[in-house]
Design a protein around this nucleic acid. Sequence first.
DNA 1: CATGAATGAGACTTCATTCAT
DNA 2: GATGAATGAAGTCTCATTCAT
Lengths: 186, 186, 186, 186
Amino acid sequence: MVEKRDTKEKILRAALEMFTESSYSTVTIDDIAKRAGVSKGGVFHYFDSKLQLAKKALVLGVKMLWAKNIDEQLDGCKTPAEKVWVIIDNSLSGIIEQSKLMRFINDMYTYCKDESGTMESIKNIWEEHIKIVKTTLSEVGVSNPGLKSRILCACIDGLIYQILTFQELKINLDSLKKEIYDLFVK
Amino acid sequence: MVEKRDTKEKILRAALEMFTESSYSTVTIDDIAKRAGVSKGGVFHYFDSKLQLAKKALVLGVKMLWAKNIDEQLDGCKTPAEKVWVIIDNSLSGIIEQSKLMRFINDMYTYCKDESGTMESIKNIWEEHIKIVKTTLSEVGVSNPGLKSRILCACIDGLIYQILTFQELKINLDSLKKEIYDLFVK
Amino acid sequence: MVEKRDTKEKILRAALEMFTESSYSTVTIDDIAKRAGVSKGGVFHYFDSKLQLAKKALVLGVKMLWAKNIDEQLDGCKTPAEKVWVIIDNSLSGIIEQSKLMRFINDMYTYCKDESGTMESIKNIWEEHIKIVKTTLSEVGVSNPGLKSRILCACIDGLIYQILTFQELKINLDSLKKEIYDLFVK
Amino acid sequence: MVEKRDTKEKILRAALEMFTESSYSTVTIDDIAKRAGVSKGGVFHYFDSKLQLAKKALVLGVKMLWAKNIDEQLDGCKTPAEKVWVIIDNSLSGIIEQSKLMRFINDMYTYCKDESGTMESIKNIWEEHIKIVKTTLSEVGVSNPGLKSRILCACIDGLIYQILTFQELKINLDSLKKEIYDLFVK
DNA sequence: CATGAATGAGACTTCATTCAT
DNA sequence: GATGAATGAAGTCTCATTCAT
């Protein structure tokens, strides 16, 4: 009973780990099974196909990283400005993890672009995040919070992308955070 | 003689087209050969392996898109501020093409991360671009042009990434350009 | 106790249904279990293997269709000629069912040809039937009843086979019955 | 050039041999490749899938056996009655081969029944054969040649089926031929 | 130079069967 | 008795790569 949930969970986590490390096509069901400690057949007992497993793993990954209790941290802030700082600081601190997830999302996009569902659900989680940023920027009192929230998030994504592609930022992360903060909050 | 160069070129372009449309593993040598109008064996006559071909195609793609005569356009500008606008406008106008290339880069990263060479050469092209942006921002007189140039480029990359992943920006592109311009040039 | 017999019977009937509809290799234990309303393990509780189950189902099917109270019907006939008609009419009226069973027999033949037992027992049932036909033809007074009984049965089998393979006979069934009757009884 | 046709032919013949000996699901692509003397990949170079190969092999088999130069033999006959004898003699002489082919046809039926094409083309060949029998019976001057031709063919099919299922006829083949001849030609 | 037939490693997936609960 | 999670052997099919012509 509890076992069942556990095995499925184990497979899902193993899949997430592997798919964030390598590309979808490079990772084999065998690899995942081995890492999860189950047999190849076991994977198919819980998931219909490799693709379905990857999709589920992707959603899990996005939820784990993006839905990371940022709400609590924002609640603990005294001023709106502080909130902005928390958002920037938070996003860029887990930049390596973020970049791996981004790679995975990007990879899966190729396999899911013609279907509706998977990317949609990720988009929804993403939009939730944008909304929080927008509200926060509004509270700070900046002009055009709608546009600015998207630009701020794009900024962070772009930096993550640079890390992903080049493995380094060449600039001190803390200076970057500060500069971004100044740019948006003035 | 000229023929030779042509065939190789044809294969390279066909590969670039296909690899920007689908993922590396999805595209087959057969597909590329067919699109290039040569035989499967022909591809291996000019390239050692699929991976080598993909790398060459990637570099070609990056050069074609990033090294796109921006220099000339910048030369035509009268004020530094105008140059910044050209940079922003240019990058975001070809956003669909950019996003496809980004996907390809991302895809190849998985296959090349453990080796030195390919990603390095792309990085170099990228750094060239950053340098131009930095110089331009300096001329405008903003503070911390080094940091700001990276942030501006990250901003643009992040927007491209959103297009790539979600197929839409939900915001008018021109308003975005203007807002970004204001943000960085004030 | 009674339950036990019931479960086994349920499985057997479910198996017969499925094996007459699709081929042995296409039908899975899961399918049978589902149709019988038991678990996969349940099937193996009553039968050693898929093949053994199929054999038992085959014999059941043959008995159900061939041993179908033809004796009673023959007993009700007043003349030997009437008996011949009953045999022909009976066999060809259930032609669709017969053809499904024939397909199953044929299918199983591949899996059992190298072993003695299953096909033997079916053959025995078959020989019983031939004997009845032979006796009946003797009573009618035809020449060579031994040969003719086999030819008559072959005739019917051949028509069933045509139905099986081509799904239609292209000829009115009643005319056929009458013609066959005339041919053998004159 | 000639090679190409040869290899495809070799595979087709190997497939026909194996599929007439065992069931579709039991025969593996590996088996066929081995018997044809090519690699597994070679099979897929010429045929899209196992099923497609089996269909092609089936049609080949039917053509080879059914379209067997019966026309020439019939042309050589002096009287219509002689023709009938040739038909009966011919069909029942190759009864073992016929029964193997029948098993294959039957087997494939399961996999092709929901699609149009394969069984249709076999049916056409079959109908051709019926037509010849009908014409011959007409020439002999029997009543209802349309019905009788179908019954005669059914007779032969039924005997083939008995051979297939029980491996023996229990009756001398020549007596059978004679009896059938008498039955239809009188 | 060019072709495309041939190879074979390796991927995904199915499914009969076992067994702990 | 009954369940269904787990196994793993085996099958189909793909595709980069080679090589004779």
